[in-house]
Simulated assay, not measured.
Amino acid sequence: MFQFDSSPALVVVDMQNGFCHKDGSFARLGIQSDPTTIVPRINELLSKFRAAGLPVYFLKTGYKEDYSDRRGRDRQDRLEQLQGLLQGTWDADILDELTPSPGDNVVNKTRNSCFYQTSLENTLRERGVGHLIFTGVGTDVCVETSARDAYQLNFAVTTISDATGTCNESDHLAALHALRNFGGTASTSEVIEALEKLRDSNHV
C-alpha cells in the first residue's frame, strides 16, 4: 500500500504549450506528447494537494532570447529557428488547463533536471519537503532525470504512472520500469488515497 515517507509536494514537469499543445513548437517539429489522458489526473492531484495545504511546484523549460543558456546549441537547430520555448512566450507557458494558482511555485529550468542551476533544492529544504511526487512530461526525459536527481539528493521520490507521459507508450513504460530503482511509481488513485489518510491523521 502506497504511503508518504515524509512531508510531500506535487511536482508538475514541463506541461507547457511548446511540449504538449497541438500548435506548440514540438508539434511543429513532429514531436508531441499527447496530454489528453494525463491532464485530468494532474488536475485531480493539484486539487487534492492544494486542499490539503501541501506545496505544488510547476517546472517549466524556458530559454533566453539568444538561447545562450541552452545545452548543445546549433545554429541550424529547428527549435531555435521556430523560436520555441523562449521565456515569456506562449510556447513556454503552462497549458491553460493547468494554470498555476497564486500559491503554487513556478520554477524555470534550462536542462532536463529541475535541480540544475535552480533554487528548487533549497526551496524544498526550507519548506521541509521530504517526498516529491512527480507528474508531467516526458516520462523518459525531464521527469526521469529530475526523479533520479531527487533520489540522489535523498528525497523520497514517487513517479505517478498514469499522470506522466511521453511521445510513445513503449518509452513511457521503459522509463517507469527504470524508475522502480529510484523511488518507484504509484497511480493517481493510490496517491489520493494516501493524501486522504494523511489529512485524516492530521485532521486537516
Results as ranks from 00 to 15, higher is better:
residue 118 T to V: 01
residue 179 L to E: 09
residue 99 T to S: 15
residue 130 G to A: 14
residue 116 Y to K: 07
residue 145 T to N: 09
residue 148 R to E: 00
residue 126 E to A: 14
residue 161 S to P: 05
residue 200 D to Q: 15
residue 129 V to S: 09
residue 97 E to Y: 07
residue 147 A to V: 13
residue 158 T to D: 06
residue 189 S to M: 00
residue 175 A to T: 05
residue 94 I to F: 10
residue 121 E to H: 15
residue 170 S to G: 06
residue 164 T to W: 03
residue 152 Q to S: 13
residue 130 G to L: 12
residue 112 N to G: 15
residue 156 A to V: 12
residue 94 I to N: 08
residue 136 G to F: 13
residue 172 H to K: 00
residue 137 V to P: 03
residue 86 L to P: 04
residue 139 T to S: 11
residue 152 Q to D: 13
residue 121 E to A: 12
residue 119 S to G: 10
residue 198 L to F: 02
residue 198 L to M: 02
residue 149 D to A: 12
residue 90 W to H: 14
residue 131 H to I: 14
residue 153 L to A: 05
residue 197 K to F: 10
residue 133 I to W: 01
residue 143 V to F: 01
residue 115 F to W: 01
residue 94 I to T: 13
residue 201 S to G: 10
residue 194 A to E: 06
residue 150 A to L: 06
residue 141 V to P: 00
residue 105 N to C: 08
residue 173 L to K: 15
residue 92 A to V: 05
residue 180 R to F: 12
residue 178 A to H: 13
residue 128 G to T: 08
residue 151 Y to G: 00
residue 178 A to G: 11
residue 170 S to P: 05
residue 129 V to N: 11
residue 189 S to L: 03
residue 122 N to K: 04
residue 161 S to K: 07
residue 96 D to K: 08
residue 174 A to L: 08
residue 96 D to H: 05
residue 200 D to S: 15
residue 182 F to C: 01
residue 148 R to L: 03
residue 183 G to H: 07
residue 168 N to A: 02
residue 184 G to H: 11
residue 122 N to A: 00
residue 138 G to C: 15
residue 189 S to I: 03
residue 92 A to M: 01
residue 171 D to M: 04
residue 160 I to V: 08
residue 114 C to G: 15
residue 158 T to F: 02
residue 134 F to K: 12
residue 141 V to I: 08
residue 164 T to D: 04
residue 163 A to S: 08
residue 187 S to H: 02
residue 196 E to L: 05
residue 142 C to K: 05
residue 119 S to L: 09
residue 107 V to N: 00
residue 152 Q to C: 07
residue 113 S to D: 11
residue 100 P to R: 01
residue 122 N to E: 02
residue 94 I to P: 06
residue 189 S to V: 02
residue 160 I to L: 04
residue 143 V to L: 06
residue 193 E to Q: 15
residue 87 Q to T: 14
residue 106 V to W: 14
residue 85 L to D: 05
residue 126 E to R: 09
residue 126 E to V: 08
